[in-house]
Design a protein around this nucleic acid. Sequence first.
DNA 1: GTCTAGCATGGGG
DNA 2: CCCCCATGCTAGA
Length: 879
Amino acid sequence: MSSPLKICFNKECKELKSERPKKGWPLRSGELAELCDRCGSIYDEGRFCDTFHLNASGWRCCETCGKRVHCGCIISINTFTLLDAGGIECMTCARKNVIPPPNPSWPPSLFLKDLSVKSWTQLAGSGPVPWRQAPSLFNSPINQPELHQRVPYDVDLSSGIDRLNVAERLSASSLEKKKIEDFSERLMNGTLKGVSRNTLENGNAGIKCEEQPSSCRNKAQLSSSLKDEPSTPHFGLAVPYACPNEMNGQIGVSGTHLRPALQPPLAKQFHGNVHNGVDSSGEPQIRNGRPRVEARGRNQLLPRYWPRFTDQDLQHISGDSNSVITPLFEKMLSASDAGRIGRLVLPKKCAEAYFPPISQPEGLPLKVQDSKGKEWIFQFRFWPNNNSRMYVLEGVTPCIQNMQLQAGDIVTFSRLEPEGKLVMGFRKASSTPASDQQDNEAHKTHMGYSTNGDADLADPSAWAKVDKSGYIATEAIGVKSSSSRKRKNTTLGSKSKRLKLESEDLIELKLTWEEAQGLLRPPPNHVPSVVVIEGYEFEEYEDAPILGKPTIFTTDNMGEKIQWVQCEDCLKWRKLPANALLPSKWTCSDNSGDPERSLCSAAQELKAEQLEDLLAPCNSAASKKLKGAKQEPDNLEALEGLDTLANLAILGEGEALPSSSQATTKHPRHRPGCSCIVCIQPPSGKGPKHKQTCECNVCLTVKRRFQTLMLRREKKQSEKEETSRKKQQPQKLIMPDKSGDDDPVPCSKTENSSPNQKKVVSEGSDDDSNRIKSSTSPFKGQIDLNIQPEREEELSPGSDSGNVARLIQDATERYLRQQRLSSSGSNSNSAINQALLGGGTGEQQINNSIILDSSHQDPDEDHPSTLSIKTSASVSATG
DNA sequence: GTCTAGCATGGGG
DNA sequence: CCCCCATGCTAGA
């Protein structure tokens, strides 16, 4: 590794590394720990753990020779193997009885299971994972050439995994089912052993486990092999891949699904080679759950698809049964995956490697079990795409909704043995392994142990987080930040810009826009202009509003506006002036205005019942309406969301949030039980709607934001016009420190508002009460707050800003657009248009309205300048 | 007019 | 340059 630090990687050692530090164990990043001479020597001699970890936990004794092995440590990860019956065995003993696995590509258990022979179709459509038999194909005597012959299309067979996967798929897909059945049958009869070996031997740069019974473990042994392949990620602390000692199918735990640092003595063994075990080399595979590593550049599965299960994940999936989990792959849900279309795009390689072969686009129904044991049937199919295929799982929407997943969350696929069931788990993007959502330590770990090049891994501080049991224990904040960061660096970072946007969109997805709206506070030193809408005053911020700690506004006995804020530490509620601007994290010590209550020890001013009254309205959907015009968080949920957002603000952009908001089936951004107007509305959009006079927090904040939005739009439009239609906004918008509400162009309202726009709207709206009076805001629009947020995801794949404010803006824009789309032709819609048209120049206003309509329809057009271009075309359609 | 299925496109690796 | 795949696009239901 190229640790920036000059000291020995051994945290027990403070020695400085020499110019040419000694190489130690492989890190998950794929690099090697750099040690000082002394530690290096100790490591080389195999005495590292004995020397430095004597008092650490994780020591176990070899079941055979009794030798003590430090199982809970990355350094010794490859010096032992887990026994099926429990316990461990040192490599020395393990090698003695090693028998090459029939085919490392597939879990040995497969070979031993008494699988009935079914056609793929049958298998796929019913019962325990049918397709899992596929692997068996390679267990047949069929020789490599035969496999190749079955390959209908051109594939790179040079890689072992390629061969296996492709051959497998190809053979299945290209062959007639009868053939497949026969093949499977043969496989089941165990007559096909050896195929994989041949394949691997010939095409795999990896180690040939089959040839050398002990090689598997040898491979697993880091240093030597790793040193040979420094580029290979070895983040897996996984237990060395153990070749089955017997043909009973038992093999040691494959490191594949075990995270490196999460390799404590497993309470339960999760067999199965890693992924399809297609990896014959065993080496990389073992370490990181990486499916098959055809060394250098020929990986079949991209790192982002490598399963990163924790043993807890696996345990959860397997439940109390004795099932063995074989992690297959995972995928971060894209916007479209999580959208309502219900199509989950499967990574091609993964689909071909782990799902039953399909030769027809129609594919097969695939039964999948979720982590809760519930079964789902998806259609596994593909679309011809160019000369390739695009694999998709159709009908996943119910499942995804059931799991309350959003774009950015990760779905994991694994195989449950011996049932052979395909299990679909998930992890929330928040880093909490959601597949089980157990509140255990493991879940505090990052799910993102990174792959190659993860700086975090190379960072000794990260190592410091590796506790003695081998778990990566991280403090809450740390988990959040580093986790999400890792995510970005790995899955997202390596992906397209599109995905990056998505990741940022993630943040947005985790906040209801109400939550976001409610968090807005006027920028410091800025006096918000007041807009009166429907008799209520709204603050209009010229500059970017800021995010502050959520508070509850109210009026005290003296009739003064105040706000209540809860101390982060003692949770006591403190009273503050209404205009106090609070940091996201506020504690009593910040209560400088009230020295008496600037300590947590000070009694709470609010009595229990008062507090209850204060919060009560929040819990009642019926009481969502606010008494005041200020942005008052209207319920606890909102508060929670606000807290989240506040935290977000602190954490900075790109930080994943705890997925506190779980989507409802109707509205992904709302949580079960949510009684907001959105959630109680039928999908059709019919039913209760916000009235124009609605004064709920949602409406208030949206209206407020609408004003801001319109103002900004108008500014930019003006600006644009002044610069002769010169496009200039996009970059600005995506600049973290400039994006969002922060208009980079210093323009006062006066400057940017055409005189006309200052006219008070008095359009002949169907509802006169909807007029917006404003003394300062140039925009006088009306807003129909009835939208179908559930469509937001679909229509707005991503935000291009990591700036929260920007997200909020986007949310608002989307909201507005939505309401327009969903209520086109409605009074409110026309009202908006009229309102917009009523003020300022027609063109100007039209553009504004059009912008709203056009925005977000295309992620690439999420810029005013671009949007405005479309206006003319959209006008007719809109008008 | 809406929704869906399936193909096409194009950015990014 | 090719492949993957997210998502756009659109014909058809």
